[in-house]
């Protein structure tokens, strides 16, 4: 399979924070969720992919092309949606369209009109008067109107209500009905990804902790709860992180099957959520 996005040993140094040689690969036809706590490097990585920041080392390839050398070509084929609005607040949606449309080679006015109608966006309203959900949908409309092959979204769901978030998830699954397209989105609301994401890349403190299929992640890990008498040296070692309280413990293990064979009948062993996994890994590092 041809990767649609490839990041290799990417490095960026700031005062007090660094991206430390991060690598991951995404195949076309899928949705990849990019998760991690605040300040872990998600937005920095996305800005580097879009060449909005200068990298200090490593390689980024989008559609197999170097992201700096082929910036214009790549940007014609990607759509991006940021948490913050990056349009002129005083313009109406229709006026803003006139500004952005000429920037794209593949701009499609009919697609734009269709998405505006689908998303119930008012063309003559000013951008500053839109709700947060509508601004996100407008960014998506622009991204979809130039037939982007890769959608890159930085925290698109933060601050949105559950109804709009679920609409967005439907739109994203709609996009990858075309197996040549891909969606890369960062978020700290992991429940959104729990359903639709195919792959999860987890970053913490500028380092990739894992990048793997979501099903594998959720099937292999286990959330174990039980009495503290069960915790001996060996068992403690199998935990990514362990929380103890007066009445018992709760912890995440990498190998649920193994935990089942060791502790069957003595402890409660459950399937973790993505949030559990993110939380325990963040604390256990």
């Amino acid at each position: 399979m041809e990767p649609i996005l490839e990041v290799k040993k990417l490095r960026k140094n700031f005062k007090g924070f660094a991206l430390k040689d991060i690598s991951f690969t995404m195949e076309k036809g899928y949705i990849m969720g990019f998760i991690g706590p605040n300040g872990s490097g998600k937005s920095t990585t996305i800005k580097l992919i879009l060449n909005l920041l200068r990298k200090d080392g490593g390689d980024i390839k989008v559609f197999g092309l170097d992201n700096v050398k082929h910036e214009i070509e790549i940007k014609n084929r990607i759509g991006f949606v940021f948490d913050e609005n990056h349009y002129y607040e005083e313009l109406t949606l229709a006026e803003m369209k006139k500004v952005v449309a000429p920037l794209y080679k593949n701009w499609d006015d009919r697609a734009f009109a269709r998405y505006m109608a689908d998303f119930n966006l008012p063309p003559h309203k000013k951008i500053k008067d839109l709700s947060k959900g509508m601004k996100m949908k407008y960014s998506l409309t622009v991204a979809l109107s130039h037939h982007a092959d890769l959608l890159i979204m930085d925290e698109p769901t933060s601050g949105l209500d559950p109804v709009v978030r679920s609409e967005l998830l439907e739109i994203l699954t709609d996009i990858i009905q075309d197996e040549n397209k891909g969606v890369f989105l960062s978020t700290h609301i992991t429940s959104d990804l729990e359903k639709i994401a195919d792959y999860i890349t987890f970053i913490n403190d500028g380092q990739i902790i894992f990048s793997t299929s979501k099903d594998v992640l959720l099937d292999q890990h286990g959330l174990v709860k039980g009495g503290k008498d069960l915790l001996d040296q060996d068992i403690r070692k199998s935990f990514v992180y362990l929380k103890e309280n007066e009445f018992g413990f709760e912890g995440l293990v990498k190998n649920r099957q193994q935990a089942k064979s060791l502790l069957a009948g003595q402890a409660l062993i459950e399937k973790p959520t993505l949030e559990d996994i993110m939380l325990y890994y963040t604390r256990g590092l």
């Binding site: 036809g29 899928y30 949705i31 998830l169 439907e170 699954t173 709609d174 990858i176 009905q177 197996e179 359903k195 639709i196 994401a197 195919d198 792959y199 299929s213 979501k214 099903d215």
Partner: peptide, 16 residues
């Protein structure tokens, strides 16, 4: 892909 979309689950899951 259509089954994944209808059920709102990942493509990898339906593929499997």
């Amino acid at each position: 892909r259509n089954l994944a979309k209808e059920l709102q689950i990942s493509v990898i899951t339906t593929k499997r």
